[in-house]
Design a protein around this nucleic acid. Structure first.
Length: 639
RNA sequence: GCCGCCUUAGCUCAGCCGGUAGAGCACCGCAUUCGUAAUGCGGGGGUCGUCAGUUCGAGUCUGACAGGCGGCGCCA
């Protein structure tokens, strides 16, 4: 006998080997019908699986959040079955869940086309209607390998070979179709339901390695109900509407053209936004004791060799070869340059920490397939900075940085979602001891600043571990922008030193840090976050003074002048158009304030203000409007 | 870089089985001066991504290349 403890606290004895379905049936007929899986001490299991140990039990129904993961995974299995029925000879590989859905990777010589998707979907619905029972079997490893090889499933056989010795090899039977899978699964294909949709096709490498064969990936989304699916699909549409490339064009912020792939042409409005953001972060840094410097764009190859960048990144560096054979490289980052400034002359421990900032442009020859709007580019600038400090200053400096980052994100109305600690990568400089110290120090510093960190193996930079700051945007997507990297290696390689209290030479530690990261990228993220509707202080055009009739032209121009003298970015719209037309146009380009000047306002010296997103009007005297808007448009750090 | 898809006016897109290009918006002009998300009429604008090929004839079919999009990989 085993004891099962139910969520309401009741403990009841059951026969050893009782199944989840029988447990559900013992409670009620309706629960038996609704049951999809059981959870025993937190582990999900098939309903038909005999329970051999007691513990806390829970019957999982379609409404439980855990059920959704299994529904998605089973939808992937139904997809695989449908594909193998429709396209004999296609091999299955893996089909895991991803956010909002799943994918399945197939090996097939002929590519799938978009037109295949509805056909596959139709077959999937048939498989759901067939209500094929899904049953778990445990196979002998060698037999399993032989079976899958026998039916031409080389990838599956490979997966089985790589399963650690002690683990059981479970094969799920779905009607007459079989797939290797850890499970758990739903009782039958009917429970998958029909709230799914195949969404896109893509190439993907076997095991994510470029050296391996390329497989064909089919992506899909699946939900517990049609309503959830519909909600998801509208969310996707919403995200498309926020696309910074679309909004950037509509607002006349920037463009990119063939001759400069990954290089941004910032138009006047976009550059205003860029400068406003940069000025803001510049003030924040100055207030924290940073000094700003400017280092050369082109530097000799030998410096990059000494720093180590040449060895690891020269394929991604833009270089120019001079007549005498001299090779110069366009800087992909500022750190070696900053070390040169640090090294110029004798440094004393009294000067530390030195916080050095730079906003100069950087160039990286990113692979063509990775370029994306202003979010992934070849030419950009960062709110870059390097803190040269003594080892005992690391923790305080790190904490101060994290505090500043939080303040900045609060000002920009973005939410810090997670902090990850990227640990030593395979290809790296420095000793293991140095790495251990660096990783632990960074983690301790983060804790001191009161943030939880999640350790991510292998993701660090070649010279040191990094803290990555991930932010969450208005529609729930996350982006990595800020970073703090601890580096013992570059100061060593580039010979940085200071004279300590003891009169001896010491190695400084370098903290590489950025709050916004690439300004280009951050602006792209910000555009999508606010859907183009920037807070007043950031908006490239803050106010449009729009007339109703030509009688008010003179007054409108004077009013605009008064607003401009108060520091606001103002345009006038004196065109021979109806106000409704003007309101519509400026609303579509996300101008935060439309100040209407009709005959009435002109006579009374007033403005009728209309805020983006609201139809309400607020009539103020010109003086009041100037004061109020100027106050509102003050950047958050100056308020 | 790799896989798939796409490329027609400034933008969004139509163009059937090959017969030599069309809409809406935008732009320009004229009229209208009209109070909060599109005033009316008229006009200009395209060597259909590029280069080859098939054909009497190519926006339409084939190939290569370029660029874009979606993924994968990469991201100091």
């Amino acid at each position: 006998m085993i004891d099962l403890k139910f969520p309401d606290g009741e403990v009841r004895p059951f026969e050893n080997g009782v199944t989840g379905r029988e447990v559900a049936a013992s409670i009620s007929r309706s629960l038996e019908k609704k049951a999809l899986l059981v959870k025993l001490d937190g582990a999900l299991m098939d309903l038909a699986r005999p329970l051999e140990t007691g513990g806390a039990i829970e019957i999982v129904t379609r409404e439980s959040p855990e059920a959704l993961d299994v529904i998605r995974h089973d939808t992937a299995h139904v997809l695989a079955e449908a594909v193998q029925e429709l396209f004999p000879g296609t091999q299955v590989t893996i089909g895991p869940n991803v956010e909002d859905g799943f994918y399945y990777d197939f090996a097939r010589d002929e590519p799938f086309s978009l037109e295949d998707l509805p056909v596959i979907e139709a077959r999937m619905r048939q498989i759901v209607d067939r209500d094929e029972p899904i049953a778990r079997e445990v196979w002998d490893r060698d037999e399993a390998i032989a079976h899958f090889e026998g039916i031409g499933e080389a990838y599956k056989a490979q997966i089985i070979r790589d399963i650690p010795g002690g683990e059981p090899i479970s094969v799920y039977r779905q009607g007459s179709w079989k797939d290797l899978c850890r499970g758990p699964h739903l009782p039958s294909t009917r429970h998958v339901g029909k709230a799914f949709k195949l969404t896109k096709l893509a190439g993907a490498y076997w095991r994510g390695d470029q050296a391996n064969a390329q497989l064909q990936r089919i992506y899909g989304t699946a939900w517990a109900s049609d309503a959830d699916l519909a909600t998801y699909l509208t969310r996707v549409e919403e995200a498309e509407k926020r696309d910074h490339r679309r909004i950037g064009a509509a607002m006349d912020l920037f463009h990119i053209q063939e001759e400069g792939r990954g290089m941004i042409f910032w138009h006047a409005k976009g550059w205003t936004l860029y400068r406003t953001l940069r000025n803001y972060i510049r003030r924040r840094l100055e207030a924290e004791g940073y000094v700003e410097v400017k280092t050369p764009q082109l530097l000799d190859r030998s410096l990059w060799e000494r720093s180590g960048h040449w060895q690891k990144f020269h394929d991604e560096m833009f270089t120019c070869e001079m007549k005498g054979g001299e090779v110069l490289a366009l800087k992909p980052m500022n750190c070696p340059g900053h070390v040169q400034i640090f090294n110029h002359g004798q440094r004393s421990y009294r000067e530390l920490p030195i916080r050095m900032a730079e906003f100069d442009s950087l160039h990286r020859n990113e692979s063509s397939g990775s370029l994306l709007g202003v979010v992934r580019v070849r030419g950009m600038a960062q709110d870059d900075g390097h803190i040269f400090c003594a080892e005992e200053q690391i923790e305080a400096e790190s904490k101060a940085f994290i505090d500043l980052l939080r303040l900045t994100y609060a000002d920009l109305e973005v939410e810090l979602q997670a902090v990850k600690l990227a640990l030593r990568p395979d290809q790296r400089f420095g000793t293991d001891d140095e790495w251990t110290i660096a990783e632990d120090t960074l983690e301790r510093a983060a804790r001191a600043a009161g943030v939880e960190v999640e350790r991510v193996p292998g993701e660090g930079a070649f010279y040191g571990p990094k803290l990555e700051f991930h932010l969450r945007d208005a529609i729930g997507r996350t982006w990595q922008c800020g970073t703090l990297q601890l580096d013992y290696v570059l100061p060593e390689r580039l010979g940085a030193a200071y004279v300590g209290e003891d009169g001896a030479k010491h190695r400084p530690v370098m903290l590489h840090r950025a709050i916004l990261g690439s300004l280009e990228r951050f602006i792209g993220v910000l555009i999508e976050h606010v859907a183009g509707a920037f807070p007043l202080w950031l908006a490239p055009v803050q106010v449009v003074v729009a007339t109703i009739t030509a009688d008010a032209d003179g007054y409108a121009a004077a009013a605009a002048g008064a607003l401009r003298r108060a520091g606001l970015r103002v345009e006038t719209d004196l065109r021979n158009e109806k106000v409704g037309y003007k309101v519509r146009e400026h609303s579509l380009t996300k101008v935060p304030v439309i100040a209407v000047a009709g005959r009435r306002e002109a006579e009374e010296g007033k403005l009728a203000l209309r805020r983006l997103g609201s139809g309400a009007q607020e009539v103020l005297t010109l003086e009041e409007a100037v004061l109020q808007l100027a106050a509102e448009a003050t950047p958050p750090d100056l308020r």
